[in-house]
Simulated assay, not measured.
Amino acid sequence: MAERGAKWPWVVVVLGVLAIWAFQPGDDSAPAPAGAPPAGAASAPASGSPAPDSSSSPRASGDYTPPHFVPEVRRYAAEAGIDPQLLMAILFNESYKPHGPDVERAWQKMKPEASFGVANMHRAAYEECRRGRPFADRPWEDLPDDPALAVRAAAWHLHDLGAQLPAKWSGSYNRNELMALGYNTGAGNMLAFARGANPGPEARSYLDRLHDNWAKSGELVKA
């Protein structure tokens, strides 16, 4: 779910976060920002919620790039009954901005409606797709700290978009293309594209990036 006009503001946020880190004292006596977890500790899940999936640990490595999440993509695409190549391509499409809890929360302070997690999911989409799912008790605020949850939610959101497509449509796009357009622009627009409407420049650009990312996504998940 790309955020319009976000490229350069993201640079400002990243530079701001790096500046904060650079001027922190080197010992452990410096007070942590309000609400931040202790250094080296993962954020505690909400009461009654399971701990974040330990199969991905980018917080330790600093690696939030899509290839890091091949196991999660395979696992949760199968769980949701969608094409893993599509899910991986979506992660590549959504990797246009830096990820990580500190950066994402800094950005959200500037833009409260910003998306969260490695799949850039907005709150409304997450709240809808988690209903009745195995992660129903996990709040949207967990997404930056738990990339596996973010991948799982994206898989089920794509599943829900696909479930809304008619058995046949008149548009020229295939099922995966329409689901990707739905992920970027919403279900209503996806259905309009299925009926033959033409995507605007931003949606067209998203689809072009999907095509650019398609082959490498397939190589990763099918290797």
Rank of each mutant, 00 (worst) to 15 (best):
G16D: 02
V17W: 01
A30H: 13
M1C: 08
F23I: 12
E3G: 04
P9Q: 08
G5V: 04
G35T: 09
V17Y: 02
I20M: 12
P33V: 04
K7E: 13
S29G: 05
S29E: 08
P31E: 04
D27K: 10
A32D: 10
F23Q: 11
A30Y: 13
A19Y: 06
F23L: 12
A34C: 03
L18M: 15
A2K: 14
I20G: 09
E3I: 08
L15C: 12
P33N: 01
P31Q: 07
V17S: 01
D27C: 02
V11W: 07
G35R: 15
W21P: 04
K7V: 15
G5F: 06
V14M: 03
D28W: 03
K7C: 05
R4Q: 07
V11I: 14
A6Y: 01
G16M: 01
S29A: 14
P25V: 09
A22M: 02
A6T: 04
W21E: 14
R4T: 06
A34P: 08
L18F: 14
I20Q: 10
A32G: 08
W21V: 15
E3D: 06
Q24R: 15
M1I: 09
P31S: 10
P37W: 00
L15P: 02
V14L: 11
G26K: 12
P38Q: 07
I20E: 11
G5M: 05
V14P: 00
A6F: 01
L18C: 15
K7P: 00
F23N: 07
K7M: 12
A19H: 04
A39W: 11
A6I: 03
A19T: 07
P37N: 03
A6M: 02
